[in-house]
């Protein structure tokens, strides 16, 4: 439950990262993705680790929150590690059991994949932790605004994302209750044979979907009653302001990228 609640939740500490323009943070994250893909040596990984932890610490958000955000993916990471380890047969064999050998290259690549994934997930949660969903959306809208000329409507897209982020936790909570209610009527997914599980799924999905539609209807009323019209002009309370710190933030990532590419 904790993991899903971290979705779209900001943790306010007022650090310098919190104050940055959302656009620079999104740009930074995209660059970070490139940096991860460019890192191919232990030295690069090491430098990246120092850099990532330093930036995370500077947000004044406890490190354990970042680690928690990667927790749901732990089995996936383990799986990737094992697959990489077993499939790559490079370098010297470290361990041989009959016809089966573990190679140094396999272990290294396995470890790299896991570290990359860990970096990616923990560090990108920095974006959601330090930026409220509204500002994040606004930043996204800003970054996408050049595409307006191509007929794309970034404000519609971000409105959709915003509402989805707002309602996903509510709907998940409700699904929990419906799951419990049906379990109380004897439809406990855990205790039933597979054949019955399909039918039980219907008993969960129909109420959840019906309720989502009802919520959507209520939401439309509430938005329209407050004068909302699609594509009508709006002003913004929080304006996007690109400052020196933002430029520095992005430059920092570019330097990192060059550094790991060289290492």
């Amino acid at each position: 439950m904790n993991e899903r609640l971290l979705l779209g939740r900001s943790i306010e500490t007022g650090s310098w990262v919190h104050k940055l323009d959302a656009r620079s943070k999104i740009t930074g994250m995209l660059l970070y993705l490139a940096i991860i893909l460019l890192s191919h040596s232990w030295a690069a990984m090491g430098l990246l680790a120092v850099f990532s932890v330093a930036v995370m610490l500077s947000t004044r958000i406890p490190l354990k929150y970042f680690i928690k955000s990667a927790k749901p993916l732990r089995f996936l990471m383990l799986f990737i590690f094992i697959v990489q380890m077993l499939s790559v047969k490079e370098g010297e064999a470290w361990l041989t059991l009959g016809s089966f050998s573990l190679y140094e290259g396999g272990l290294r690549l396995g470890a790299f994949s896991v570290i990359r994934m860990l970096f990616l997930v923990t560090f990108t949660s920095l974006l959601t932790f330090t930026t409220t969903p509204g500002k994040l959306n606004q930043g996204l809208e800003g970054i996408l605004s050049p595409f307006k000329k191509l007929g794309l409507k970034p404000d519609r897209l971000t409105m959709m994302i915003g509402l989805a982020l707002r309602f996903i936790p509510t709907i998940l909570d409700e699904s929990q209750i419906i799951l419990k209610a049906q379990a109380s009527r004897g439809a406990d997914l855990k205790e039933l044979p597979l054949k019955e599980k399909g039918r039980m799924l219907v008993s969960l999905l129909v109420p959840v979907i019906t309720s989502a539609f009802r919520r959507a209807q209520d939401l439309v009323y509430s938005m329209e009653a407050r004068g909302f019209r699609m594509d009508a002009p709006r002003t913004r309370y929080h304006r996007l302001r690109w400052g020196t710190a933002d430029t520095l933030f992005v430059v920092m990532f570019i330097i990192m990228g060059v550094a790991v590419a060289v290492l």
Binding site: G8, T132, P133, G134, G162, L163, L165, R166, T170, R214, R215, D218, L219, Y221, S222, M223, R226, G227, F228, R229, A232, R234, T235, R236, Y237
Partner: peptide, 19 residues
């Protein structure tokens, strides 16, 4: 719950004002 448009209290109040 269903009339809360913003993801925070501030955003919800601003939703109407920005419009």
């Amino acid at each position: 719950d269903n009339q809360f448009v913003g993801a925070t209290v501030e955003e919800d109040i601003l939703f109407g004002l920005e419009g």
